[in-house]
């Protein structure tokens, strides 16, 4: 019932059944927000927290998030871990292989601005924002599973407020 409440739903009692009316936009947004399949893209420490979030106690599945091994089936990259200069072109390739609409969550300090490797490192990319566009940043080193869940819910909210056609510009 909780799901139904969030939709503008008008139902009338008419003989023979109920009619639900809503807009195409809302149905599409709803469907996309509640079935965000994410790409298993973990490079470093944050990936372990990503794994924990997917496993028993925190259980990503209840947000409708299931991991996919192939970028072609995924809607979302959770960039978990340090991106080095050697890895950056691969991240871009993976992003380009995903179908629209696609979203990116930057998990952890490393993907935001290099994290602990900002100073003195000759091989770490200082943040992924100039490689791929990011929708949600989750700070932490590593962020707790709760913050990751919070980040995903934030993304879901963003998706639900979207107007039809927004994603085509991205």
């Amino acid at each position: 019932m909780g799901i139904i409440k969030k939709l503008p739903v008008y139902s009338e009692k008419i003989p023979g059944g109920g009619i639900v009316t809503t807009s195409v936009e809302q149905v599409l947004n709803f469907a996309q927000a509640k079935s965000l399949w994410y790409l298993l893209f973990g490079t470093a420490c944050c990936a372990i927290e990503l794994m924990c979030t997917g496993a028993s106690r925190y259980d990503f599945d209840r947000l409708g998030m299931i991991f996919r091994a192939s970028p072609r089936q995924a809607d979302l990259i959770i960039a978990a871990g340090t991106i080095t200069k050697k890895m950056a072109p691969r991240l871009r390739t993976l992003y380009d292989q995903m179908a629209e609409p696609r979203y990116v969550i930057a998990m952890g300090g490393c993907t935001i601005k290099g994290g602990p490797f900002y100073y003195d490192s000759y091989s770490v990319e200082k943040g992924i924002e100039h490689i791929i566009p990011v929708d949600v940043f989750i700070p932490g080193c590593p962020p707790r599973p709760e913050s990751l869940l919070e980040g995903c819910i934030t993304l879901q909210k963003q998706i639900q407020q979207r107007k039809l056609g927004d994603w085509q510009e991205k």
């Binding site: 470093a44 602990p116 100073y119 490192s121």
Partner: peptide, 27 residues
């Protein structure tokens, strides 16, 4: 693909500051 220059970083930190960096060496 995950070469993060941990050894170089440690050369420019005090001993106490090396420990959190080395945490990331084998997380």
């Amino acid at each position: 693909y995950l070469h993060r220059a941990i050894e170089k970083i440690c050369e420019n930190r005090t001993y106490a500051m090396c420990i959190p960096i080395l945490d990331r060496f084998e997380y």
